[in-house]
Simulated assay, not measured.
Amino acid sequence: MSISLATQYVKEAYIAQLAVKRAALLTRKVSEEHLNEQSIDKQDHSPVTVGDFGSQAIIINAILKNFPGDEVVGEEDSALIKEKKIEDLIYSHVETIQQADAAHDSKLGRLESAEGLCNSIDKGNSKGGKKGRIWALDPIDGTKGFLRGDQYAVCLALIVDGEVKVGVIGCPNLPHSLRDPGSKRGGLFTAIKGYGSYFQDLNEDISYPLNTSSNITVHNEYGLDQARVLEGVEKGHSSHGLQGLIKAKLGISQPSVNLDSQAKYCALSKGDAEIYLRLPTNPNYREKIWDHAAGYLLVNESGGMVTDIYGNDLDFGYGRTLNSQGVIAASKTVHSSIISAIKSIIGENGESLKEYC
């Protein structure tokens, strides 16, 4: 479907894009300074602390300026930075980025002080739920990738009455094509419920309403013999042993691609791979909504499917967590085969799941 200024949620998508881009510029600045060993004092003035808190403050300030009645489920609060007395340090990095991006102040607003920064961070305290307009925010998804100068993402989604309506993900280091190591890096991914998924270079001006962005789709024409699997880098985030058994059962021969963060959803949505497996390492663990909401919509709107490990849809109206185990994202062509393979290993209702956690 074509997108116009009258499209429902198009303004929300545009503000989310601008805010995620501004936050991504901040995180990239902090990461680069950290890697060049010019940054933040190590006594818990870590680049993660500066990047996470600064990113969250920027995005919440922008969202609530435009949609003051909305709520935000954020990952952080300001207790730690007040305890460490580093509000001014974080604000100094934010202010540098605000000055560089001053052309968008009229749309995004501006944090005017360290106190205002802390107040903005603390507005991410929504408990979520099935009623109302609630934004799910992950200011830096993929902490270790961020510290390595590798893959991480700034992720934002709008959930309305429990249903994800808008998703925006900024990936400062993601190649435009994982199949071409020499391709440009930095992508902005956007989805609007019912209107598809889109990609544009993170470093270019954002188009409104998405009219110069590229519509992206998963490879539903690929079978298991052509499918590539996306897996997390960190073993603590997904059961790599169970992943190996599933791939063997499905006869997948393509080498897996390991990426941190929701960048995996982005790569799947634009056809750089066909399967993303996130399998429980603890049967009692429940995923956080901010880790999946934007990517969930991005893959669904690009023609793929996202469910739990039993094939059930994900419920983003349950609260700050999902009331389900694991996540399987894939093209529609192969998704049911993956679920069948999982159940054949762990049981129809996960009776043997503990053995693989």
Rank of each mutant, 00 (worst) to 15 (best):
G145C: 10
Y208V: 05
S337K: 14
T7Y: 11
D260S: 13
T143F: 01
S78E: 05
I192Q: 09
Q98W: 07
A19D: 14
P283D: 04
K65Q: 02
Q226M: 09
H335W: 01
S238W: 08
L80G: 06
V306L: 03
D260A: 10
P47F: 05
H176V: 04
G69Y: 07
I90S: 04
N220I: 04
M1D: 09
H176R: 12
I206D: 02
S214D: 11
Q254W: 04
A330H: 10
E204Y: 02
R133H: 03
G170L: 11
Q325P: 11
E274W: 03
E204I: 06
G350F: 15
R185E: 11
D313I: 07
K65D: 02
S337Y: 01
Y222T: 07
S261V: 01
G167E: 06
L35G: 07
H292D: 14
Q98S: 11
V48A: 10
V30T: 00
S337C: 02
H34W: 15
S78L: 03
G54Y: 14
S31N: 00
G271W: 03
L250I: 09
G251F: 01
K42I: 14
K130I: 07
A293P: 06
K270E: 05
K144F: 13
S256L: 04
G347M: 09
L298A: 00
I216K: 03
K131R: 05
D141C: 10
Q243F: 04
D122G: 02
